[in-house]
Write a protein that binds this DNA or RNA. Structure first.
Lengths: 344, 344
DNA sequence: TTGAAAGCGCTAACAA
DNA sequence: TTGTTAGCGCTTTCAA
């Protein structure tokens, strides 16, 4: 029938065909705005309206369009996380906890990989800012001045993580890499090791741990600490190679501090294949306390970071900011601990 | 000055304060739509307009609002990926490749964790569909009938991965778990192992590999294959415990097929601490060919899946669908291979 | 507590 | 090639 009516010549755009809030409202016999309120602020609406709307939603299978909602309210309920690469085990706990904590509060995570290279960083930032996320979580510190400027200009809450500084871009939750380096050097010394070596990634945070280790070692009277740097990512293979190389030049070392547990596993693997006793002849200390570390043989001593706590705190930061709550404490040190197991 | 003018009583909403396309257009001296075209379809615009707009963009630092663009064009350029948990190493390559392949084409990845539990699945789907993504990538198959119905109703392109079926929801890229189980059983047999055992996750895909293994083993004349199932996630610890338990009941096994390389590492670790020679007394086969597997000692024989290829193909599927290209081949088998190293 | 109107920032459709 | 107009689906603002 209606097909016979001459369609009005007014230009028009058909929607996607999906059920909209208007459809729900019509079905419920209320104004669209009432339907909106029934869903987003149920208390601001009478029980009757609420009930009619909810029933209409159930009958139609309505799913709110968050793009439209975000545009209208300037709150996207989207949070961006930037990781060097999700393949690395370091930030996994953090991303996992972040995703979950956000989901519980009605926010969704968008993932961006900076790929350890700072070249595409600008593209990535543009892609992220274009989505108007309610917050951005950075693993590590944003170092490039352009990047910092860009983020500041966007006016989006930013949380830096896995590090500490007194001049955060906005908010930060992490720990002191300097303290870690120092603590491990002291630990080695206290356990009687006198010829320690360092096998570490060449990323900036690892470098800071190494420097602090060297300084502390020197202060303890261990001035000559050989250092070997490996390019990220720090893999088992890199650990094996590094130990091989290290032993060629410094066969008398008695302890190694590795910049990740995976690297440490590589060192232990290489040591075993060379029949070097761990910790008897060579102590090994990892970093990160990966899930497998406790169950290795020998169990790996390592520096434990509560990555999940970092993710949860980051979520709290973002959500509090987005929902207009004040965030008085913007720098949070979650610390670390040295987990003494068998390898050191 | 202007503050003295009585503001018109018309109700109005201030924008977020960010630079909009209108600002750019005004500065460039063109209509907003021309600015839009200059950015999104540069060829449809004269060099002069293009140049004026680009310069205005550079001067203002304009970043397009993709929420608005997505709403207007019904193309969000957002893709959702659902993983059981990002902590597991299994899907990492896939997610990494997917993120990257999408980013290169101007799409962004949204991450959702289904958490192995199928309870929150409905919430997760609602959150995802609400964003109107241009595609959804599932790791594994969507099994729940409600979930399947919901996804189908949403009319969003869906790619299932890491599995194969003749009745995909929409598109699928993966491999046959049945073939894997069979191939490993045959491999064991051909290498002379006659008393194999299975240590595997209790997830559905692992179960299918196990069943196929059992059937093939029986066909080879190895009817009694002990099986031990561990709850996901399959960790090193679980592998150690599983081998311990397995040996108590079946001390005479000569080979183990594990449902992940991490599990296999656990088995090898436990074997070593019990002075059981691998592969001399016990052969070990993993699954997944994780990054560390080749460099273990002994190097782990395993089933290799090209997770990155899965991610790339999934990206191609989604982007082709989103951009209106036809997708004739909707089921893609990327296969697998048995990587023969030292452990088996 | 409810609703009408306006507009978030952008692009599809049409016209010139 | 460029511009005008009318939305996309939602929420804010204001008024009743």
């Amino acid at each position: 029938m209606s097909q016979d009516l001459p369609s009005s010549p007014k230009r028009t755009r058909r929607g996607s065909g999906a059920v909209t809030l208007h459809d729900v409202a019509k079905l419920a016999g209320v104004a669209p705005i009432s339907a909106s309120r029934a869903l987003n602020a149920p208390d601001s609406v009478s029980a009757e309206v609420r009930q009619k709307v909810l029933s209409a939603v159930a009958r139609t299978g309505y799913v709110p369009n968050r793009l439209a909602g975000g545009l209208a309210s300037a709150r996207s309920r989207l949070v961006a996380a930037v990781v060097p690469t999700i393949t690395g085990p370091v930030f996994q706990q953090t991303v996992q906890a972040l995703t979950q904590a956000l989901a519980e509060r009605g926010y969704q995570l968008m993932l961006g990989q900076s790929g350890y290279a700072h070249s595409r960083e600008d593209d990535l930032l543009e892609a992220i800012i274009g989505r108007r996320p309610d917050g951005i979580v950075l693993t590590g510190i944003m170092h490039s001045p352009q990047g910092r400027k860009r983020l500041a200009a966007a006016g989006i809450p930013v949380v830096e993580t896995w590090d500490l500084t007194h001049t955060p871009l906005d908010m930060i939750v992490g720990f002191s890499h300097v303290d870690v380096g120092r603590a491990v050097a002291d630990y080695f010394y206290s356990k009687g090791y006198r010829r320690p070596a360092l096998i570490g990634g060449s990323d900036e945070r690892s470098l800071r741990r190494q420097q602090a280790f060297l300084a502390a070692a020197k202060a303890c009277g261990m001035p000559q600490v050989p250092v070997l740097q490996v390019a990220p990512p720090t893999t088992l293979k890199a650990g094996r190679q590094a130990l091989r190389q290290m032993l060629e030049q410094h066969p008398d070392i008695d302890a190694v501090f590795c910049s990740s547990d995976l690297l440490a596993l590589g060192v232990m693997t290489e040591a075993r294949s060379r029949r070097i006793a761990v910790p008897g002849r060579l102590a090994v200390m990892g970093f990160g306390d990966f899930e497998f570390s406790a169950d290795l043989s020998p169990a790996l001593s390592t520096v434990r970071i509560d990555g999940a706590a970092i993710g949860q705190q980051a979520a709290r930061f973002i959500v509090d900011s987005a929902e207009g709550r004040s965030v008085p404490q913007r720098v949070i040190d979650i610390g670390f601990s040295i987990v003494e197991r068998e390898s050191a």
